[in-house]
Nucleic acid binder design. Sequence first.
DNA 1: CGGGATATTGATTGATTTCAATGTGAGTGG
DNA 2: CCACTCACATTGAAATCAATCAATATCCCG
Lengths: 231, 231
Amino acid sequence: MDAVRQINIDKRSATLQGVGGAAGGRPYDFLTDVLRMLGTTLTYRRNEEVFGEGEPSDYVYLVVTGSIRTYKLLADGRRQIAAFCLPGDIFGLDAGETHAFTAEAVERSRLVVTKRSTVLALARRDGAFAGELWQIAAAELERAQAQLLLLGRKNAQERVATFLLEMAERTASSDMIRLPMSRQDIADYLGLTIETVSRTISHLEHDATIALPKSRQIELRDKRALAQLNA
Amino acid sequence: MDAVRQINIDKRSATLQGVGGAAGGRPYDFLTDVLRMLGTTLTYRRNEEVFGEGEPSDYVYLVVTGSIRTYKLLADGRRQIAAFCLPGDIFGLDAGETHAFTAEAVERSRLVVTKRSTVLALARRDGAFAGELWQIAAAELERAQAQLLLLGRKNAQERVATFLLEMAERTASSDMIRLPMSRQDIADYLGLTIETVSRTISHLEHDATIALPKSRQIELRDKRALAQLNA
DNA sequence: CGGGATATTGATTGATTTCAATGTGAGTGG
DNA sequence: CCACTCACATTGAAATCAATCAATATCCCG
């Protein structure tokens, strides 16, 4: 645990009294730095499980490359994907002793892994850093709440439009987006079936709202129209 | 801010390294104590707004009596209720500077209100307390994720069964539950229409799974059957 | 150049929504 | 004390959106 001591605690950027809803940039730079410095890089194959629901939450993960899906299952196999984690995202930092969901690699992914206890030890010594853990959980909560609105109240077109805009925003390649996940993954994220997702995408293509040079590569041609559908 | 100093910081019960998924009891006793000691009690009338989405998050709330709904709206008025807050629950503790949702009193409610800045000041001086804020956000996140599964993948019967069991568990009056909220509120929480909720409840009544002496008072007669539907 | 997984498209079904009455109950005023 | 009223809840019939069932089509990948 001496490695912890070597981190310059004052070099953090987010603090407890800090912004939170900051305009640009990821507000968790300090934790990200910690993970990068102390963590071990692991590679996961496509569809490989990172951890399962109910397993002890011993590690915290930072996505370096690739993408991760987190999900819950019903007894009969119905699946709801809670989030896709993209490069720069942190996941697995549950407050409880066990993970509340399963995490799997969507595609071959490189993750930086650090012991949760290390992060907690650091947080115990630094209130501002502890505040960053809170900010992370709160940001995820806000995302989840937006997803509740989508799942509870939006129709298929609106869900797909919201998803495409979200992906465009997150990958920052604004207009041409690469989808690492299958249609089934998208369906399980949006609470639809694969057929409905496919049909809805086709419909948007006929509208010329989007173009799809390849099934997993989508060009947003009319963001205005998508935004209209978004809410 | 001197009042902060008077709190015995060592009298807390939840700490950063603390349990989280603890069996019984609410794990946020310290924050609850803080709010009770420092807060002002306010009463809200039925349907009165506590705060609106986008307003500055200046205060933190503890429900003493009554119940609160938190929700988001779409532009055309579709509403998704994210949570019902019951006595003992804390809400409004957003990490960001503005609230991500609206909060309203479902019925006449008494709340203890404390300045957010007070809570943050305390957290800055005490890492374990800061950890408690994290635990609260993480617990809410976990609840939201369970709700994602419900909204994305459960049918109407399963949603209602889950809701009834949840209410029974939370009010601890295990078998006879009082519903402070209208059918419309329940519908907007479960992502259904009022008619579907009503029909589903009627169906459960015909099954003798439940009995409803009054429309807002439900007796769970066959929890086994409900649990079956729950997942 | 297969071949298996992934994706699209079509036809049909079905659960939930929508539209439309009707019922019920708590509070009010005659 | 009872009729009235308004909000809330239930029930029924019809419409609709998405799911299901069923073929293809396409794309990687070896």
